[in-house]
Each structure stands twice: as C-alpha cells, then as structure tokens.
C-alpha cells in the first residue's frame, strides 16, 4: 500500500476516533453511573455543531463557536436532566432509552425548525498543513486528536483525583452504598450528565469543520457511537478510548481498501467481540439496578 495514503489514513482515523471518543464518553459514563442509555447525547453533539456554526457567523471565530457550543450543550443537557431524567432514573433501562430517543428525535425536529433542513458548512479554523514523513496532513485534524487526548487526561484526573470523581467511580460500582455514606447521588448524576453533555457538544463543535452540519448528523453517527461503546464495554472510559480508536482506524483504513468496508467492518468486529465477550472489551458484568 502507498505509505502516504497509509499515513493520512491513520491520521484521518485518529481524528474520527477522537470525535467518537468525545461523543461516547457521555453515553458510557451515564450508563455506568445512572444505568441509562442516553441517546440524547447525540442531540448535544448536533447542538454543539450548530452553535459553532452560528457563533462562527456572528464572531468570525470557529474556536469561540466551539466553546459556545460546549456551554449551550451543557445547559440543554442540564435542563433535560432536571425535567425528564430526574423523574425516570428509577425505571427500567429500556424505558429510559426510549425516552432519550424521544428527546433526540424532538431535538432533531427543533433543529430543523430553527436552522432549516439544508446542510450548513463550517470552515476549518486552521488551513495550514503539516508534513509528517513527507505526507501533508491538515493541522486541524492533529489539533482534534490532541484535544481529545487532553480530555482523556482531564477526565482521568477528575475521576481519580477529585472527591466528586471518586464518588462517581464508587457510584459506578454501587450507587446504594454511596447513598449509604450520606452522599446525595442525584447531585453526582447531574454533574455527570452535564459533563457528558459538554463533551458531546465539544465533539460536535470539533467535528463541524470536518463535515457538513445537518439536522440528521446525530442519527448519522449513532451507529458508530454504538459500536464504540459496545466494543469498549458500557461504563468504561478506558474501553471507550481504546475502541473509539479501533473503530476510527477500521473506518478509515477500511475505506482505503474497499469503500463499503468502511461501514461494514466495524460491525463485523463488533459482532466478533460480542461473540467472545458479550459485555465488550472492558465492560464488567454489571447487573441492572
């Protein structure tokens, strides 16, 4: 294979994987702690992208847009958690999943209402190229990779070094015991949900210059996000990181080999992994709460 093609393919896969990772953390954390499958994270992803677009039009800076997208996504996530999830946390997981799907769907409708149906372009904030072993790589993609790596490190530090993070880790193991120590777990839930929403918004904002922003964008990445969390194992941050990059590489290298493989190969890998380990690479055999 042409080494130039290979290098740019790997970088492309890493950047896609980065976006998937940012987007999947929310799903994974929310499942781990609250035992919900929060499909509405895909809505915050779309919101992040759209706010990036709008703020770019207003201010002329994509970076301000991305920041604004994170803030707005976090606020919307907070509202959704307050008004919907807080009432249904106790329910069966399939039902919270349906409710979150409803939120996603309603959100797509609202986005169509506000921004219209047509795909919208967001320019890349940096057009410069870097040369890696003689291959020209867009610097923006490298920045996306670096940002997602920084997010991983910060999430790791948050979970391991702060008392809230430790409580969240404890809650992932056993919510009841955390409550038994006098800790208000609903505050932890809200914190986790907002963090997830903000990161999903970040994913959307960073992805926007690489794709066209359109109302269905959440639904379009949904299967890939699913694959990431399934392969990695629901509830595991490390698993999410590993599998996001696996899926990213499979998509981009698969596409080099044979076009349609890009969509099919991750699914085949997912099936294979589930066959060997039905709870994903790093997923534990957690019971329903």
């Amino acid at each position: 294979m042409d080494p130039q093609l290979l290098i740019s393919g790997v970088i492309f896969g890493l950047s896609i994987g980065s976006v998937f990772f940012l987007l999947s953390i929310g799903l994974s954390l929310c499942f781990g702690l609250m035992r919900i499958i929060s499909l509405d994270q895909l809505l915050y992803y779309a919101i992040g992208a759209y706010i990036t677009y709008t703020l770019y039009l207003v201010t002329g800076s994509v970076w301000i847009g991305v920041l604004g997208g994170m803030v707005i996504s976090g606020i919307v996530a907070f509202g959704v958690e307050r008004f919907i999830f807080l009432r249904i946390y106790e329910r069966d997981i399939t039902f919270t999943m349906i409710a979150s799907f409803g939120i996603l769907f309603a959100g797509v409708g609202a986005i169509k209402y506000i921004w219209g149906l047509a795909p919208l372009p967001v320019p890349s904030p940096i057009n410069a190229m870097a040369s890696i072993f003689g291959t020209e790589i867009p610097i923006y993609r490298l920045i996306v990779i670096v940002i997602s790596f920084l997010v991983y490190v910060s999430i790791w530090a948050f979970l391991n070094k702060t008392i809230t993070g430790k409580a969240i880790r404890a809650g992932i193991e056993n919510v009841e015991h955390v409550e038994g120590l006098g800790i208000n777990v609903y505050k932890l839930f809200t914190t986790t949900f907002i963090i997830s929403g903000v990161l999903s918004g970040l994913a959307g904002g960073l992805h926007a210059p690489l794709i066209m922003v359109d109302p269905q964008m959440g639904l379009e990445v949904l299967p890939f996000v699913f694959m990431v969390v399934i392969i990695g194992g629901l509830g595991s941050i490390k698993g999410t990181l590993v599998s996001a990059f696996i899926v990213g590489q499979v998509i981009s290298l698969g596409a080099i080999i044979y076009g349609p493989l890009a969509q099919m190969a991750p699914f085949a890998i997912m099936l294979l992994i589930l066959l060997i380990k039905p709870t994903g690479l790093y997923g534990s055999k957690m019971l329903k709460r």
Binding site: I163, K166, A167, A170, N174, H177, V178, L181, N184
Partner: peptide
C-alpha cells in the same frame, strides 16, 4: 436515604461490597 445517613443513622449492608476499584484511603474519604 442519604439525608438519613447524614443525620447520623447508618446502615451497613449485608453484602460486604466495598468500592473495590478504590483504595482503602479513597473508601474512607467517601
């Protein structure tokens, strides 16, 4: 239940499940 615990009535469950992924120190911190 978490308010009751904070008020000074603590339940120590049967299952002997500590937070296994956390260190003893972190368990005590919580």
């Amino acid at each position: 239940c978490y308010d009751i615990a904070r008020m000074g009535l603590k339940y120590i469950p049967q299952d002997k499940k500590v937070f296994s992924d956390l260190t003893v120190r972190e368990n005590l911190e919580l």
